[in-house]
Every structure is written in C-alpha cells, then in structure tokens.
C-alpha cells in the first residue's frame, strides 16, 4: 500500500527535475552570449561581474546547474531585467491571483460540467444531452482567447458591466469588503469565460462515464435493494465516478494552466501567466524562467494532490502495481 504513494510522489519529483533541466537548458541555449540570458547587458561591468560570480557563470556547467537548482528550489530567481527588482518579489504578489483564477474556474467548470454530464446521462436523447455533446466538441476547437475577446467586446466594451482590464480598479477602493468585491468583479469575466469554455469537455466526459456506470450490474442491484433513487445516484453511481473524475482533472491541469496564461493576457490580470508573457516579449530571462518554473510547479503540485486523492477514492489502485494511464 505504501508503494502507491511512493510511486506517485516519485513521479512528481521526476517531473520537477525534468522541468528544472528544461528550464536550465532552454535559457542557456540562447544564441550568442549565454551570460546575456542571466545578466542584463545594460548593467555596469562591475555589477555584471558581481552577478556573474553570484550565479557562478564563470564556473563549469555542472556547478552552474547545481547552483541553479539550489536557487530555484529556494525561490531565489535573481533580478528582473525589466523592473530591476528581485523576481521573487514580483512573483509573490502574482501567485495568489493565478491560483484564484485557476482554482475558481476549475472548480466551477468541474461542478457545472459534472452536473450537466450526469443529467445528460440520466435522460439520454434529451435536449440537455445534445447541449453537452455540442458543448464538448466546441470546447475542443474554439480558440479560447477569441471567445474571451468576444466576451470582453460584448460585456465590457459594448455593454460596460464588467471591467475591460486589470485585477483591481485603479486606484483600488478602500476597505476590506469593497476591495474584495472589486477583486471579484474583475475576476468574474475571466472565470466565467474559462468555465464556459471548460464545462463542455467535462460534461462530455462525465456523460460518457456515467452512461457506462448506470448500465453496470451493481447499479441495478443497488436499485434492487430498494434504495431510493437519490441514494443510488449519489452513494453508488457518483462514488464510482469520482476516481475517473480525478483522473481527468489531473490530465487537464497542464492545459488549464496554459489557458490561464492566455486568459491573464486577454484580461490583463496581475498574474504569473501575464508576467511570463511580458518577460518573454521583453527578453527578461530571469523572470521568464522563474514564471515558467512556478507554473510547472503549480501543475505538478496539483497533479500530485489529485493523484493522491485518487488513491483515497479508489481502493483498487492502492493494491495494483502501477496504474495504466
């Protein structure tokens, strides 16, 4: 039983290691002077020399990598070329925003999608099922940012009920409650758009699973035991749905994080994704590397969390050797 948890944690560590290597290699693969990717060419020679020493840029690659891993793991990402402030400070204020965007949109689309999927599975051939089928197909082929731009166009530009940009009003309102409401107001359209784009895939997946589960013998037997319909659905059918639901959550996470980068850019939110995007366009390599690392870390951490939850919800996997995914 221990080995299941050990394997999952081990695989997360491996992914993280790969991310670190990728990050290290990517930003040292730059054409020209590798130093330019870490130290701003605009800095004075003395400052350059000092920074080079700090990052060990004069040392062999392996030492550099060790140093890099050490600083990454202690969240010491160096100085941003663009703002001249430590990248870690810049990121600290943005991580909560990204987590809020990701968390709330993921939660809402999972809830809405799951509910719709279950209803569609219960009433096969209804209008709801058609909605789910089409919603699913559209969410796989619709460019998210286009949909979001249209939403902005309609609900922020044409009918100004939502703000066009930003995570907070400028200047932000005073007082806790007012500040919170302002924040939610700014987050509403981004989250709404992600939910509208995301629920279709969920619903389609849940519907297909649920159709299969409802046809299983143990559901018939649960009915045969005289259990009320709600109990059959919640206690048995939904309980069976839970593990695969976590699997899809797990598999969709990387895509959702990618989507957050686009969403933050479209809505000009103060988050890690837009920071990455600005860093990349502004050739701010320390900042870009750090945001990439953080986004990957976020993905890996949530993947691990849902993986562990999976083990809790499905007693069967804990005994298996390795899980075929």
């Amino acid at each position: 039983m221990r080995s299941y948890w050990a394997r999952r944690v081990g695989s997360s560590v491996l992914i993280l290691a790969l991310v670190l290597v990728l990050n290290f290699v990517l930003f040292r693969m730059m054409p020209g002077d590798p130093v330019a990717s870490i130290v701003d060419p605009k800095f004075s020679p003395e400052a350059k020399a000092r920074l080079m020493e700090v990052y060990g840029l004069d040392k062999p690659m392996l030492t550099q990598f060790a140093l890099y891993v050490k600083s990454s793991l202690s969240f010491d990402f160096g100085i941003s070329f663009l703002t001249g402030r430590p990248v870690a400070d810049e990121l600290r204020s943005r991580v909560p925003n990204t987590v809020a965007l990701l968390g709330s949109s993921l939660l809402l689309s999972a809830l809405l999608g799951t509910w719709l999927g279950i209803q569609a599975a219960r009433k096969r051939g209804g209008a709801l099922e058609r909605l789910v089928l089409w919603g699913g197909a559209l969410s796989y082929s619709f460019p998210s940012f286009f949909f979001q731009l249209m939403l902005l166009m309609v609900f922020a530009a044409a009918i100004p009920i939502f703000p066009l940009r930003g995570s907070l009003s400028v200047p932000p309102p005073l007082g806790g409650a007012a500040l919170f409401l302002d924040y939610v107001w700014h987050l509403a359209l981004p989250v709404l758009s992600q939910v509208l784009l995301g629920f279709g895939g969920w619903a389609l997946y849940v519907r297909n699973l649920m159709v299969k589960i409802l046809g299983e013998d143990f559901i018939l037997m649960a009915r045969g035991r005289g259990l009320p319909e709600r109990r059959v659905l919640r206690g048995h059918a939904f309980r069976m749905l839970l593990p695969p639901l976590l699997t899809i959550l797990l598999l969709s996470l990387p895509g959702v994080v990618s989507g957050a980068v686009l969403t933050e850019t479209v809505f000009s939110l103060h988050g890690v994704g837009r920071f990455l995007m600005e860093a990349v366009t502004g050739h701010d390599y320390p900042a870009a590397g750090a945001s990439f690392f953080l986004l990957a870390l976020l993905t890996v951490a949530s993947t691990l969390a849902s993986d562990l939850l999976y083990g809790v919800t499905d007693p069967r996997v804990r005994l298996e050797r390795g899980r075929g995914r």
Binding site: F218, M221, G226, G235, H236, D314, R316
Partner: peptide, 29 residues
C-alpha cells in the same frame, strides 16, 4: 424490495459497488 423480498444475484461479483466495502453495503440497507 429487500425488506420483504431480497435477492442473491447470479455471479455475485458485480452486485457490490467496487469502491465501497462489503460491510458498507450491509450498513446502508
């Protein structure tokens, strides 16, 4: 069902919900 007429299905393998313990099924009824 169950209070007056109970049943032991053919191939009892599938009569239990796989993610619940056997005891849980009994408790539930």
């Amino acid at each position: 069902r169950w209070r007056r007429i109970a049943l032991v299905p053919q191939g009892a393998m599938n009569s239990f919900t796989p993610v619940l313990t056997v005891g849980r099924h009994v408790e539930e009824v």
